[in-house]
């Protein structure tokens, strides 16, 4: 059965996340996961003239590195699905021009990492393509300009605001497993847009918690599992403000995720790095999942992980027009699988 419950896709023909690659900026490299990234830069410009080019370089490098790690050439990849935070998702569009892989550009704000992975896995599962690369990027300075103020503007931010991380992550999904131990993309729960009437763009953790709540609750119901069936339930960028709200919301429905929950935005920086409530941005869930989580799964320290990437779907214009912030969360289950077992 491919469709479980109302919102969950089960990838019947096994789909594998064969390789991943991550690229990160200076502050992320100084964080606790610094040594898990494939490429790091010690300057936000990443040797480019402007911020937009820098972000494009991050995305291109993550995809190229990912393909190379799987011993493939770009023309052997059937599809690229990618998105980012900039207007008209230009980072992805221009990277796709350089890479010349058949391309779908998607927008899911910070949920893009799991949105692209879910879509890529579905198309591989259905047999339209043999493999696909799912990728996303964000850059602190391009996001500041897109959503907030000029980077050097001296406005004071509240403690609930998050820091958009600089980085990119890519994962290569394939129908063929290529190792003794493989990471399987087991299922995905596609989120609904939630709006709990929050309008503060400097407190996205609070705005996104209901979306994560709804997706996690629906997922567990659809697949008939409890939180203890997972070694980790990982949210994207709820930060230190949104994470406790999510846990308490789920507790109201008798679901306790305290033991297994973590948030990518809280994992990517050290507590002394002055990043307000934590990391955010498309790349936040991507660099953590495709770096640290992927390697922990391969090592066997984790066996089954639910990654719930959360996204806030507003624009500065909507915020100025006093609209509230719609949010979404997509969940994907990654599990370790040894070849002789299957």
């Amino acid at each position: 059965m491919r469709k479980l419950g109302k919102q969950t896709w089960f990838y019947e023909n096994k789909v594998y996340l064969n390789e991943t690659a991550t690229v990160a900026g200076p502050r992320e490299a100084q964080g606790p996961l610094g040594n898990t990234f494939d490429i790091t830069y010690d300057d936000l410009h990443c040797n480019e003239d402007n911020w937009e080019k820098a972000e494009r370089r991050l995305l291109e490098q993550s995809i190229q590195t990912c393909i190379k790690k799987d011993n493939l050439q770009t023309d052997q990849v059937d599809l690229m699905i990618s998105g980012d935070l900039l207007n008209q998702i230009v980072t992805s569009n221009y990277a796709a021009k350089t890479l010349a892989i058949p391309f779908f550009g998607i927008f899911g704000a910070c949920s893009t990492s799991m949105q692209s992975l879910a879509l890529a896995s579905a198309l591989v599962d259905a047999g339209f393509i043999n493999n696909a690369v799912a990728a996303t990027s964000s850059h602190n300075a391009t996001a500041e300009r897109q959503f907030r103020y000029p980077t050097e503007y001296g406005g004071q931010k509240p403690a609930s605001s998050t820091t958009t991380i600089t980085g990119a992550g890519a994962g290569l999904v394939s129908k063929k497993a290529n190792k003794q131990v493989n990471i399987r993309v087991e299922s995905a729960t596609i989120g609904k847009v939630m709006d709990y009437q929050m309008g503060d763009p400097f407190d996205l953790g609070t705005a996104m918690a209901p979306a994560a709540y709804d997706t996690i609750k629906t997922h567990l119901g659809d697949v008939g599992r409890t939180p203890s069936d997972y070694d980790l339930i990982l949210t994207g960028d709820l930060s230190s403000v949104g994470s406790p709200i999510l846990k308490d919301m789920l507790k109201e429905d008798g679901i306790n995720i305290d033991e297994v929950h973590n948030d990518c935005g809280l994992m990517v920086y050290n507590s002394d790095q002055q990043v307000f409530a934590g990391g955010s941005g498309c790349a936040c869930s991507a660099v953590v999942t495709y770096g640290h989580i992927f390697s922990e799964l391969l090592k066997g320290n984790l066996n089954k992980v639910l990654v719930v990437a959360t996204g806030a779907l507003m624009s500065p214009t909507m915020v100025q027009q006093k609209e509230t912030i719609p949010t979404i969360a997509h969940g994907v289950v990654l599990m370790r699988e040894e070849l002789n077992q299957s």
Partner: peptide, 12 residues
């Protein structure tokens, strides 16, 4: 419930 879309702003 404590958390619903109507009173979320107060609850949080």
């Amino acid at each position: 419930k404590k958390f619903d879309s109507e009173n979320y702003k107060q609850t949080v």
